[in-house]
Design a binder for these strands. Sequence first.
DNA 1: CGCGTTCTTGACTGCTTTCAAAGATGGTGG
DNA 2: CCACCATCTTTGAAAGCAGTCAAGAACGCG
Lengths: 254, 254
Amino acid sequence: MPHQLVSGQSGGTRMTSAATVALPPAITRLAALAPLDAEDMAALQAATAAGIRRIPARREVLGEGHPVPQAQIVLSGWACRVQMLSDGRRQIVSLMLPGDLIGMCRQRDPLASSSVLALTDVVTCLAPEPRQGQHGTGLAEAYAVSGALDELYLLRHITRLGRLSAYERTADLLLEIHERLTLAGIASGNMFPMPLTQEMLADTLGLTSVHVNRTLQTMRRDGSVSLRAGTAVLSDPAHLANMVDRRPPRVTSR
Amino acid sequence: MPHQLVSGQSGGTRMTSAATVALPPAITRLAALAPLDAEDMAALQAATAAGIRRIPARREVLGEGHPVPQAQIVLSGWACRVQMLSDGRRQIVSLMLPGDLIGMCRQRDPLASSSVLALTDVVTCLAPEPRQGQHGTGLAEAYAVSGALDELYLLRHITRLGRLSAYERTADLLLEIHERLTLAGIASGNMFPMPLTQEMLADTLGLTSVHVNRTLQTMRRDGSVSLRAGTAVLSDPAHLANMVDRRPPRVTSR
DNA sequence: CGCGTTCTTGACTGCTTTCAAAGATGGTGG
DNA sequence: CCACCATCTTTGAAAGCAGTCAAGAACGCG
């Protein structure tokens, strides 16, 4: 069943074509957020052709406090927004997966309020400017929906950190990642790539890596999750989701 | 010293007049975010005149999943965005203080991803639409800066919940409230109204009310904070800020 | 003055962290 | 093909921070 994200709209044809032909994840995702016409697709293709940027793992994509350049699209790899405390504590504030937008966060022009870090090797391209007018407006809508989703994830992250136990937090985050990767067409059913180290997970979940390790072991033991060698499998996402009170994201009313 | 929020811009005259004449907090705040011309001010006055809405404490301002109507400005009182879990756990995701915008959160049109609750009696009015053109563009900028600040607060909230201890979280939140109320011209030096009950604080800080109580007692004992009868006083904000690694918010580069 | 809400307190439990060190794992160069 | 190194994962024991439960005190409102 395709992700019923945009309500009142089947999305069937788009998802089907994405599942059949292996489109780039970023395009799959944006096309799932809003209907893209030929012109939109062309703009995306052109953006890729115009030049991609490779950022090696552990390198900063955007420094904190530096002016935000034009928005970028993550083509592959995982990045994150991170805040550091002077004593070395670190909090990953949001994850950026293929198809996500970097630097368009919300309002234009604010300085980055956190630095953006590549968690794996990352490839990006500049996000094509959406057009005004009859054609090519799908992109603008996709960007808007993407932004709304970003906020949704941010809010859920807060609730996760504030009110869920270590086990619940971990389950909830894995569910979110699964959800998002599915949207981008990465993920085969309940299996998906999960390149984060336990320390990165810890910095996301507000835990120590030791405790993340123990929590994952518990999950493996009770059979809800298997996570090894960069690949995760959720044995029963719906059940897990129910357990942590996670509802499918709904963003637009049309 | 006025809040040096917008860099490269003294803001002296605006803040001075606000301090001298008691302008409504909402106007003080918006005027502190961007220079407002006569037309902007008139639009705000008109919006107030056009009709205000009173929401009693504990009532929903906006239901989760309901379409977001036109944005509103908080004229007085405190509200919050809250997420609930089915077992009764509750997380306050953001606070909305006088001068804050409700429902403009970010992208237009998304359904509310959390419900908005009045924490005290709240008065709002509709946020005037910003104009295009030569005059009255200050409002649009003020809205944009306000949105950027919202995001900043959200991100900091995440770090607070994920990486700070109970003591640090509490201090950091009080500093943020102080900061924000100062921007709105509410707050006399280090003193400011703090109508949140310990349970509301707990739901914001991801703690139990019992532990908030104990934490506040510790703070009172070590003299860093006094908090009684709806009024808070920070004895040394700079020192506290340094202790929790809190930096002044910077949002725009111009 | 009475009642509901909010604040305090104590004792106890338990989840999560800390510290330290020992395995895995994967990639690199010899 | 194997040794080697850096990174990542796993384990154990002990300490600590925060949660739970329950009850009493204080406060504010009508």
